[in-house]
């Protein structure tokens, strides 16, 4: 039943024009990055290595597909959550605004199953967005710029990852990104269960992301303790997958915090929807 419902939900998602905004935006943004790097790659390299060039001697190709994909990943950190909340916020609030939620809840399907099916469909949608990003950014980058050892600049220093050791890290990073995006998407869906306005959940979820990120920047012990439980703090932990060696415990803990948020957001959404009077 759930699978059947999720297929219906997924079908509805892909038939909605706004669901394609994410794909179009990714294609445009990544293409712009590719063009800029293609035209000004050398200057960018010099700019990136400014200040450490005396300690580092790079032989061979510094700018290649892996580095481009890594840069894109960082650049889209804010854009991607926004793009997926456009769809996630619409799943309940959009249906409530359009009156189709009433039609759904008139059918002989428990509400919790409808919500669960929407969560599953959302998961698949976000996965398709991430896969698309991987194909465009990593696949396109490799095709355009080739491959090489990945040199990653970190605040603690420079990490050089041999090209043969890079691909699995990207797979893990994209998977981790999916989890981070799902957390924001499920938060938007939760907000969507509280309102009939499809734009409200998008603004609400993004506001939470911005506020949490801003709070985490405050250098106060209490805030540090709190922000350790913010999903925004852990959403960027994909970068740790490009450390050598990978701090698996830290990545695992961050992943667990995100999973916990996903579960809590989903349960609260189900609880809200189960108790909600459909008045629209």
């Amino acid at each position: 039943m759930i699978v059947r419902l999720a297929r219906l939900e997924l079908w509805k998602i892909y038939r909605k024009p706004r669901s394609w905004i994410a794909f179009a935006a990714i294609a445009v943004l990544v293409s712009i990055v590719h063009v800029v790097i293609f035209l000004q790659g050398e200057q960018l390299t010099a700019l990136a290595l400014q200040g450490i060039e005396q300690y580092l001697q790079i032989e061979g190709q510094y700018v290649h597909g892996y580095l481009v994909a890594f840069i894109v990943q960082g650049l889209l950190l804010v854009h991607l959550p926004f793009l997926v909340t456009l769809v996630a916020g619409d799943l309940l609030a959009g249906e409530a605004a359009a009156g189709t939620l009433r039609m759904l809840f008139l059918q002989p399907v428990p509400r919790w199953k409808v919500v669960l099916a929407k969560v599953l469909a959302l998961g698949l949608y976000v996965a398709s967005v991430v896969v698309f990003l991987a194909v465009i950014a990593l696949g396109g980058g490799v095709l355009l710029f080739g491959v090489g050892d990945l040199v990653v600049l970190k605040s603690a220093g420079v990490v050089v990852i041999p090209s043969g050791d890079v691909l699995w890290r990207f797979v893990a990073a994209y998977s981790y990104n999916w989890l981070g995006l799902m957390t924001v998407a499920l938060l938007a869906m939760l907000f969507g269960s509280l309102t009939d306005n499809a734009l409200g959940p998008v603004i609400g979820a993004m506001a939470v992301v911005i506020v949490m990120t801003a709070i985490a920047l405050l250098d106060v012990p209490l805030v540090a303790q709190l922000s350790d439980w913010f999903f925004t703090t852990h959403a960027a932990a994909w970068r740790l997958l490009f450390d050598s060696p990978v701090p698996t415990m830290q990545v695992g803990r961050s992943g667990a915090v995100l999973v916990m948020h996903c579960v809590v957001f989903s349960i609260v959404t189900v609880a809200v929807v189960e108790r909600r009077d459909v008045l629209s």
Binding site: K12, R15, A98, G99, T100, R102, M103, L106
Partner: peptide, 15 residues
Amino acid sequence: RIGALIERADAYPYL
């Protein structure tokens, strides 16, 4: 066992 049309007929406009 119930079929209902409540207030107004709303459907997915893009379908």
